[in-house]
Deep mutational scan, measured.
Amino acid sequence: MATDAALRRLLRLHRTEIAVAVDSAFPLLHALADHDVVPEDKFQETLHLKEKEGCPQAFHALLSWLLTQDSTAILDFWRVLFKDYNLERYGRLQPILDSFPKDVDLSQPRKGRKPPAVPKALVPPPRLPTKRKASEEARAAAPAALTPRGTASPGSQLKAKPPKKPESSAEQQRLPLGNGIQTMSASVQRAVAMSSGDVPGARGAVEGILIQQVFESGGSKKCIQVGGEFYTPSKFEDSGSGKNKARSSSGPKPLVRAKGAQGAAPGGGEARLGQQGSVPAPLALPSDPQLHQKNEDECAVCRDGGELICCDGCPRAFHLACLSPPLREIPSGTWRCSSCLQATVQEVQPRAEEPRPQEPPVETPLPPGLRSAGEEVRGPPGEPLAGMDTTLVYKHLPAPPSAAPLPGLDSSALHPLLCVGPEGQQNLAPGARCGVCGDGTDVLRCTHCAAAFHWRCHFPAGTSRPGTGLRCRSCSGDVTPAPVEGVLAPSPARLAPGPAKDDTASHEPALH
């Protein structure tokens, strides 16, 4: 009773807030009518008042009428009001819900409408889902798969039609296919003929059939049928067999079959498995989609049935006599038709004709302190090069084509190399640097090759510096006499390219 009084008091307290929050009759008014909170006449009256005075006034009048009803109607109103779709449509209802007392429970059932309790003993237990329907569909599909699609060729003596089998029958139906081979029951999904010589313990000319048996419980189990008994694959494991010639990621696949039913060829011909030897223990289905393919039931050349050999690369099948050149017997292992072999060759040939990528240039590290003349020119003028003790990398590039010797140069053309002071002394051009340390401070000019250098860098042994005729380390061993002091540049003949010694390969005349 306390809860009923509290709900009535809360409705009177929030009546105006609810009326202002509800700006549309749908969905709240319609939901109240659906849950029998508002009768039909009051529903029509509220809609009429909404058209006349507006939605807030109409709902305020409806809530005032609701306060005169019993506690069950008020409880049902609060339940409908706080439904998710009403809270989404009328956003101003959320503060009312947040301020609702926590001790007021809106989930209690309506009085007088409590459903009768059902004894637990009368409640049926839930049924577990079964796979009976899938099993029945598999039974119905198996006879259809064994139905012949056409008439065999005159040369083929193997013609068999499976008798119709009602689904209610649980007995196995067997077809006489000759040579002791028996087909599987209607619940078998796949059958492959297997030679009895590969099964340990088999006697006589009995041949087993590799099947997948579907049981009534819905589970499946792969086994071997020899005669009327089934054997699990673990009985046929043979770890010492060295003649297993397995197909790549293979499961067994029928390579020879008669049109209309699988079996042995007439005249004692023995149908073979995809792999010879003992049956392997793992009978998992292969991951290669080509091995799941269903080959055609007629020859791809003459479009006739009979004894066919199936290609492992495509769905086509052929007569042995229709092949070019014809085959006398079934080859062992994987067999592919000429079209598949030709496609494989065409895929391999473009790969062989692809040009080989060019090898990157060989990189040879230079000892610290040495650099090529090109690196000396590329440096920024007026700045010493940083990191001189790091190992430089010199790339061996292809030799350029031989060019004509340089033409003779006048001494005026070499004027930018040297600057003559007032006393006739050779001065260095701006930006000249030593080729060893890279520093341009207090550098000297070689009178023979006009290269800038430090005496301490080229002659670290402490050799005394002569007063005139300074030469760098590369030119100090040259027998050519030094030019007379005061000459602007060496003779043009000295600039012609010539053979250089091994220790002077990195010091070429550089223009500054």
Results as ranks from 00 to 15, higher is better:
Asp4Tyr: 05
Leu11Ser: 02
Arg12Val: 04
Val22His: 02
Asp23Ile: 02
Ser24Gly: 03
Ala25Asn: 00
Phe26Met: 00
Asp36Glu: 14
Pro39Thr: 13
Pro39Gln: 03
Lys42Pro: 01
Gln44Thr: 03
Thr46His: 04
Thr46Phe: 00
His48Thr: 04
Leu49Asp: 00
Lys50Glu: 06
Glu51His: 02
Gly54Met: 06
Phe59Leu: 02
His60Cys: 00
His60Pro: 00
Ala61Ile: 00
Ala61Met: 05
Leu63Gly: 07
Ser64Arg: 00
Trp65Val: 01
Leu67Arg: 00
Thr68Gln: 00
Ser71His: 14
Ala73Gln: 00
Ile74Asn: 00
Asp76Asn: 01
Phe77Pro: 00
Arg79Phe: 06
Val80Arg: 00
Phe82Arg: 03
Lys83Ile: 02
Asn86Gln: 00
Arg89Cys: 03
Tyr90Arg: 02
Arg92Thr: 01
Gln94His: 08
Gln94Glu: 02
Ser99Pro: 15
Asp103Asn: 05
Asp105Gln: 00
Asp105Phe: 04
Gly112Lys: 03
Lys114Arg: 07
Pro115Val: 13
Pro116Ala: 07
Ala117Ser: 06
Ala121Met: 13
Leu122Lys: 04
Leu122Trp: 08
Val123Met: 15
Val123Gly: 14
Pro124Ala: 05
Pro125Tyr: 07
Pro126Gly: 14
Pro129Tyr: 02
Lys133Phe: 01
Glu137Met: 15
Arg139Leu: 13
Ala140Leu: 12
Ala141Trp: 12
Pro143His: 11
Ala144Arg: 08
Leu146Thr: 11
Leu146Lys: 09
Thr147Glu: 15
Ala152Phe: 15
Ser153Phe: 15
Gly155Met: 15
Ser156Gln: 05
Ala160Ile: 08
Pro163Val: 04
Lys164Ile: 06
Lys165His: 12
Glu167Gln: 08
Ser169Asn: 12
Gln173Leu: 15
Pro176Thr: 09
Leu177Asp: 03
Ile181Gly: 05
Gln189Glu: 10
Arg190Lys: 05
Met194Asp: 00
Ser195Thr: 14
Val199Lys: 07
Arg203Trp: 03
Ala205Gly: 07
Ala205Leu: 04
Val206Ala: 07
Val206Lys: 06
Val206Asn: 05
Glu207Cys: 05
Ile209Thr: 02
Leu210His: 06
Ile211Lys: 02
Glu216Ser: 14
Ser220Ala: 03
Lys221His: 06
Lys222Asn: 06
Lys235Glu: 04
Glu237Gly: 11
Asp238Ser: 07
Ser239Lys: 01
Asn244Leu: 03
Ala246Val: 12
Ala246Arg: 04
Ser248Ile: 12
Ser249Ala: 11
Ser250Pro: 01
Pro252Asn: 14
Val256Gln: 06
Arg257Ser: 08
Ala261Lys: 08
Ala261Ser: 05
Pro266Glu: 04
Gly267Glu: 15
Gly268Lys: 08
Gly269Trp: 15
Glu270Cys: 11
Ala271Ile: 11
Arg272Pro: 08
Leu273Asn: 08
